[in-house]
Amino acid sequence: MTKTQKMIFISILVAQSLVLYIIETMIPVPFITPGAKLGLANIITVISLYSLNFFDTFFVIILRIILSTFLTGSLSSFFFSLSGGILSLLVMFVLKKFGKENVSIIGVSIMGSVSHNIGQILVASITVQNIRIIAYLPVLMIAGIGTGIFVGITSKFLLNYLKKIKFMNIN
């Protein structure tokens, strides 16, 4: 992949994740617990983790979070997204690196969703200075397993198509 190809691929990913983020706010989600949502933008994080290196993926996430804050959120949601995004990236990266052949894209994305929830809950309990918010975590984790499986399967199908592009090296 040349430098220009990479730059354009990153910007396409960021644009796609923003669109998914906006579409996600339009889909009504049954209100299970505060903060539960589909996490469609995680598809892009998983895709870039499998097609780019760590720092480019980090770049994609940071850009998405900054731009989505401009589009919809307030400053407080910026920090929640940031903590969730970075923690889930780290966990997915480590799992993918050390799991190697034993772990598939589905397992990686499940851990991504769940650790995203954990990161957000931690920052939330710090901002309101009340540790008891962690009581929401079990329900969020179960929801995260479900959305993680969904995101993983979607990314798997998407990667099959990306593999056909000549300059892509999917690992």
Binding site: I110, M111, P138, I142
Partner: peptide
């Protein structure tokens, strides 16, 4: 689905349901 995937799903379900039950 591979070996670790099953382990991940099972352990997460176990952790979340037990902590939910305790709560």
């Amino acid at each position: 689905m591979k070996k670790f995937d099953i382990i991940i799903i099972l352990s997460l379900v176990l952790i979340s349901t037990t902590s939910l039950a305790l709560h």
